[in-house]
Write a protein that binds this DNA or RNA. Structure first.
Lengths: 176, 176
DNA sequence: CTCCCACGTTCCAGTATTGACACGTCGCGG
DNA sequence: CCGCGACGTGTCAATACTGGAACGTGGGAG
């Protein structure tokens, strides 16, 4: 459902083709809302049918440059401010943790050690990306920086949590 | 894909009916991996077809008590320890933040204030749930406590982040 | 003893998402 | 001037997920 809103949001910053949008999804947005190429194109067509975007210009190899319409802006605004977010749902790492009783305590500890290491790596990668980007003061840059910071804090939290969880398990292993 | 593994994991702790599993999903597990009733029942049938669970007993009103089989335990173990988790993907709150340039700076700030408040409420609710549970030392209790702690830390992180983000916006509002 | 609610399962239509395949074209490096 | 890699779009089948409806039953409260 939200892919269409993501597309509206991107088009709100200026016209773009499906291909352009695709690339944005595969780079910046993939961590927050992944999408495949087929979905992007089908949803663009649906948005056009719904009159929320329109083909502004056709370019070289069948390229269609889309732009957002007034109705699209309306819908985007509504979704941003008035539709209650789902929030976080569906976390397959946490699901595994919950079910870790199915393996031995030492395997469970190893699992947590792995998570600790992985969170650290992700955190470092985000740190690097932050440092390697020259942030501007345009909206996408400002709000992009906020989401990146969220990611860094998230990874830090996970790292601290897994260290803590490991301690807990060493202190009081589950009684079978 | 993971729903089936969640079911296997729950059945690994003892036999249960679809109805029982449903209830577990609607209470404990809903925050980590939501599932509707129809999905639970269809996946139970598929697991049975695949020979990973089996009907252990039939009860009163057509009740089927399922138990995990050796093949099921094998699959569960494999998924837990050898399949790389997706980790965190798809966050519609963060997606909104990223696209917040579509509304006015003051509306964006209001959005963050809302998130701050909501995170606080969720955190309090988890805190309360923690205090109101008498934790045992059986696996589901031990690992359940770890996931609950993750939730608390997540909410705390979000609260701190939104306060920080708000500050950033006040300090340097996006330039249109 | 009766009624109602919780127990219990199944089916279905619609949408979302994935992954792959198919197909055509501009443009530039060699 | 030729080929190939990037540009660019579309379609399909399969699976995941949602929301709702339908249907039947046992057991305990009154």
């Amino acid at each position: 459902m939200s892919l269409r809103h993501a597309l509206l949001g991107l088009l709100d910053t200026g016209p773009a083709s499906g291909y352009d949008l695709m690339r944005t999804f595969n780079s910046t947005l993939s961590a927050v809302w992944p999408a495949t190429q087929s979905q992007v194109y089908t949803d663009l067509n649906r948005l056009a049918e719904a009159g929320q975007i329109r083909v502004a210009a056709e370019g070289p190899r069948g390229r269609k440059s889309y732009e957002i319409t007034a109705a699209g802006r309306e819908e985007l605004r509504h979704w941003l401010l008035e539709v209650a977010p789902d929030g976080y749902r569906r976390n397959d790492v946490l699901l595994r943790v919950f079910l870790l009783g199915a393996v031995s305590p030492s395997e469970a500890r190893e699992f947590l050690r792995q998570r600790h290491a992985i969170s650290g790596r992700h955190r470092a990668a985000l740190e690097e990306r932050d440092a390697g980007t020259d942030w501007d003061d345009d909206p996408l840059s400002v709000y992009g920086r906020l989401t990146l910071e969220w990611g860094k804090r998230f990874m830090t939290m996970q790292q601290e949590w897994s260290a803590w969880a490991l301690e807990q398990l060493e202190k009081a292993p589950p009684h079978t």
